[in-house]
Amino acid sequence: MSVIAKGKTRDIRELKNIAGNVRINILHMLTKAGSGHTGGSLSAVDVAVAIYFSKMAFDPKNPLWEKRDRFIMSKGHAAPLIYAIMAEAGYFPKETIETLRKIESPLQGHPCCRTLPGIEVSTGSLGQGLSVANGMALGLKLDDNPARVYCIMGDGEIQEGQIWEAAMTAAHYKIDNICGVVDNNGLQIDGPVEKVMGIEPIHDKWASFGWHVIDIDGHNMEEILAALNESESVKGKPSVIIANTTKGKGVSFFENKVEYHGVAPSQEEFEKAVKEINND
């Protein structure tokens, strides 16, 4: 069996090591591609790694295994993050990441479920992942399938009205087999989120929509694991984790730099970044 069982990795040190590898893979593929979204891929690394390697059951050799837990990267521009994780988990050979954004690559600029098995649904046009996650969660419940659905959203992304339609739906249908994550890195393309279109108070917004809300430091692995455990224990309502993160996390010269939202590292920057991550 190639199934990666739920709770496979509980060791914090190991999860941190995986996160370091994933960061390097992200930077590697972005540097090779010459374009792509650096900042928002790096900010969500720790939460996504914890979800995949500590919480989810999945089978890289059988991506459509029906008992798998589901993961949707609603902020599709963080495609390099999901690809780096999938490479780490063994969905495809690591060298495939060098084909990111190239013609006929399964690794499209934004995730495509038709070219890459293991991607649950294509994303990229923002605000749509949570609705799909709800639909999956409802379908799983109809089948008495105990699998859970994880959905990472961007903080800028929740400016989309559809997110709040989906937030209403999850509460209305008491969808408790879903765990939303808001990657609250504070920046979007045009600048600070609060300057472009304020979304605060995020916690109160989700709570008033009927969600169980957990606020954490999105780079603290202990807090992340505790939040994921807590979300699993909440019954009768959906849970969302507000992961307070740093855009570009892990590479000092990318951190909190709005200009690295959609820019890939140069070769020189890549080499410098890898040194930083390895010394961390």
């Binding site: 649904v121 992942g129 609705s131 799909v132 996650a133 639909g135 379908g139 559809q162």
Partner: peptide, 16 residues
């Protein structure tokens, strides 16, 4: 909420 309806329908389809 038509947009949410379509996304939810897609999710249901993805579970068979």
């Amino acid at each position: 909420a038509e947009q949410d309806m379509i996304g939810t329908a897609a999710g249901l389809a993805l579970t068979g």
